[in-house]
Simulated assay, not measured.
Amino acid sequence: MPDLTPAALRTAVERLAPARLPALTQHLFEAATNAQQTQSLAPLRAFVHSWAVFVAIERHPERAARLRALERLVDEGERDPSAAITEIRVIQETAEAEAGL
């Protein structure tokens, strides 16, 4: 896991999922703007949390693929999503623990 800094997370995203760099850049811009406007670090903390979890998941391609499959299943709305939602939570909680959050 990289350090939980915007620069380190950006480098990790660049390596793991370069197509997501524009989203990371936009999120960081919005977080910095909101932090300045509200005089609070909460938006920057949310940015770090979000992207640290993303990196922790993407570091394991099988886990990332499973998460995407579960999210598709929930989005389709054709079956009871309870089991999928539970598994999504487990994946996210595991990633949070790996990231030290």
Rank of each mutant, 00 (worst) to 15 (best):
M1A: 15
P2N: 04
D3R: 09
D3V: 11
D3Q: 11
T5V: 15
T5F: 05
T5M: 07
T5S: 14
T5L: 09
P6V: 15
P6N: 13
A8S: 13
R10V: 01
A12I: 10
A12N: 07
A12G: 10
E14S: 15
E14W: 11
E14K: 13
P18V: 14
P18A: 08
A19E: 15
R20L: 15
R20E: 15
L21A: 12
L21Y: 05
P22F: 02
A23Q: 15
L24E: 03
Q26G: 13
H27V: 03
H27A: 15
H27Q: 09
L28A: 04
L28F: 06
L28M: 09
F29N: 01
F29A: 07
E30R: 03
E30V: 02
A31P: 03
A31D: 07
A31L: 09
N34C: 12
N34E: 15
Q36A: 00
Q36C: 01
Q36N: 03
Q37S: 05
Q37G: 01
T38W: 10
Q39F: 01
Q39K: 11
Q39I: 01
Q39N: 13
S40N: 14
S40E: 00
P43A: 08
P43R: 01
L44N: 07
F47R: 01
F47A: 04
H49M: 14
H49P: 06
S50T: 15
S50C: 13
W51I: 00
W51H: 07
W51Q: 08
A52G: 08
V53F: 00
V53Y: 05
V53E: 06
V53R: 03
F54S: 10
V55T: 06
A56N: 04
I57G: 04
E58Q: 05
E58I: 00
R59W: 11
H60K: 13
E62R: 14
R63C: 05
R63T: 12
A64C: 00
A64S: 10
A65W: 07
R66V: 07
L67S: 02
R68E: 13
R68W: 13
L70T: 05
L70F: 04
L70A: 04
E71V: 01
E71C: 00
L73P: 07
L73W: 00
L73T: 12
L73K: 01
V74G: 02
D75C: 06
D75Q: 03
D75V: 00
E76P: 09
E76R: 08
E78M: 14
E78D: 12
E78K: 13
R79W: 12
R79N: 13
D80W: 01
D80K: 03
P81M: 10
S82F: 08
S82E: 14
A83H: 08
A84R: 02
A84L: 03
I85V: 12
I85C: 11
I85G: 08
T86N: 08
R89A: 05
R89W: 03
V90G: 05
I91Y: 05
Q92C: 09
Q92S: 03
Q92P: 10
Q92V: 12
E93W: 06
T94W: 06
T94H: 05
A95I: 04
A95K: 04
A95N: 07
A95W: 03
E96V: 05
E96R: 15
A97V: 14
A97S: 09
E98Q: 11
E98R: 12
E98F: 11
A99H: 00
G100F: 02
L101F: 11
L101D: 05
